[in-house]
Simulated scan of single mutants.
Amino acid sequence: MKILVTSGGTSEAIDRVRSITNHSTGRLGKVITETLLKAGHQVCLITTQQALKPASHSNLSVIEIKNTSDLLQEMKRIVPDYQVLIHSIAVSDYSPVYMTGLDQVQASQDLSEFLHKKNMESKISSKDEVQVLFLKKNPKIISLVKEWNPSIHLIGFKLLVDVTKEHLIQIARESLEKNQADLIVANDLTQINADQHLAYLVEEKDYQIAASKQEIADLLVKKIQGFDR
């Protein structure tokens, strides 16, 4: 099958030398991609320069992106060409709009004015003791996938921190319904370390448990094989 995988974490520029990002390494996406390739699938991996990547392979193509805007453009372009999407990339929820000193913010009568400004410097001055950074919400790319390709099989990911198993599965099912996904891989950051990666592969009425990145990848490959029947 033709499978699209997204992996790593996006980075949103504040100026030419600073950015806000997340701690995603792309390690899980790498394992998933390698397992798909071993199973004989044709894979396109959308990832970032810093993320871990599999070795080159005749059935693998790689597209590197930097930020959420890049990711949106690339996915809109190629999602219609694929049968399955495994959307494991950590997408930034917000992008910087404007950064300024606290004194300017306190003097303003209308904070919304800062949402229409742009920093013109290549490197914003660090002279102020306190800076205020204004952010805007990024689009939820997973919610657009079915608009681009109604027939694609969608596997999404949900990461929460220090919650109950029941809450994690509930939130995963809400994402499943909202985004018309086939499966959501639900993770809790407190249960991820060098030796384990506990995850719940959540469907509408059932779920499976995986204890490692390789187990997650193996279960996803089995699920995808069912899509092809």
Results as ranks from 00 to 15, higher is better:
residue 177 E to L: 14
residue 77 R to E: 10
residue 119 N to W: 03
residue 196 Q to K: 10
residue 169 I to H: 00
residue 17 V to D: 00
residue 116 H to S: 14
residue 184 I to P: 02
residue 87 H to N: 03
residue 227 F to Y: 04
residue 10 T to Y: 07
residue 7 S to P: 04
residue 58 S to N: 10
residue 114 F to N: 07
residue 141 I to G: 00
residue 112 S to C: 13
residue 182 D to C: 09
residue 159 L to S: 07
residue 108 S to T: 07
residue 98 Y to H: 05
residue 182 D to H: 10
residue 197 H to L: 09
residue 15 D to K: 07
residue 181 A to C: 02
residue 114 F to C: 06
residue 68 T to L: 07
residue 44 C to Q: 13
residue 138 N to I: 03
residue 22 N to R: 08
residue 212 S to K: 01
residue 7 S to N: 04
residue 215 E to C: 06
residue 33 T to L: 05
residue 10 T to E: 09
residue 105 V to E: 10
residue 225 Q to K: 13
residue 23 H to T: 15
residue 34 E to R: 11
residue 2 K to R: 11
residue 55 A to L: 10
residue 184 I to L: 01
residue 116 H to D: 13
residue 147 E to Q: 12
residue 160 L to M: 07
residue 100 T to C: 10
residue 25 T to H: 04
residue 152 I to E: 09
residue 97 V to N: 10
residue 187 N to T: 01
residue 103 D to R: 14
residue 124 I to S: 09
residue 95 S to E: 12
residue 24 S to Y: 01
residue 46 I to P: 06
residue 50 Q to N: 12
residue 40 G to S: 04
residue 168 L to D: 02
residue 31 V to N: 08
residue 26 G to M: 01
residue 84 V to C: 04
residue 24 S to N: 00
residue 172 A to M: 00
residue 149 N to S: 06
residue 148 W to C: 01
residue 102 L to D: 12
residue 103 D to N: 12
residue 202 V to W: 03
residue 78 I to R: 05
residue 204 E to W: 13
residue 190 T to H: 15
residue 133 L to K: 04
residue 143 S to V: 05
residue 57 H to L: 02
residue 22 N to V: 04
residue 64 E to G: 11
residue 208 Q to H: 12
residue 150 P to F: 02
residue 151 S to K: 15
residue 90 A to K: 05
residue 219 L to F: 12
residue 167 H to P: 14
residue 192 I to L: 06
residue 85 L to S: 09
residue 28 L to T: 07
residue 9 G to D: 05
residue 7 S to G: 02
residue 113 E to F: 09
residue 164 T to L: 09
residue 190 T to R: 15
residue 190 T to A: 15
residue 227 F to E: 06
residue 127 K to D: 13
residue 70 D to N: 05
residue 100 T to L: 07
residue 40 G to Y: 04
residue 88 S to V: 06
residue 54 P to K: 00
residue 145 V to N: 02
residue 44 C to P: 13
residue 64 E to L: 13
residue 218 D to C: 09
residue 99 M to K: 09
residue 124 I to K: 07
residue 97 V to M: 08
residue 77 R to M: 11
residue 159 L to K: 03
residue 138 N to Q: 02
residue 17 V to P: 04
residue 194 A to N: 13
residue 92 S to W: 03
residue 224 I to G: 11
residue 207 Y to S: 06
residue 21 T to R: 10
residue 68 T to A: 07
residue 142 I to T: 01
residue 150 P to G: 04
residue 170 Q to I: 11
residue 85 L to D: 08
residue 26 G to R: 02
residue 94 Y to M: 05
residue 81 D to G: 09
residue 224 I to A: 11
residue 188 D to E: 05
residue 181 A to H: 00
residue 120 M to R: 15
residue 132 V to I: 08
residue 52 L to C: 10
residue 71 L to R: 03
residue 210 A to T: 03
residue 104 Q to K: 13
residue 95 S to P: 13
residue 156 G to F: 00
residue 3 I to S: 11
residue 138 N to C: 01
residue 141 I to Q: 00
residue 124 I to D: 08
residue 208 Q to P: 10
residue 167 H to V: 13
residue 118 K to W: 14
residue 28 L to Q: 08
residue 162 D to G: 09
residue 195 D to T: 12
residue 139 P to N: 00
residue 120 M to A: 15
residue 3 I to N: 08
residue 179 N to H: 04
residue 42 Q to I: 14
residue 55 A to R: 11
residue 119 N to T: 06
residue 135 L to F: 04
residue 165 K to A: 04
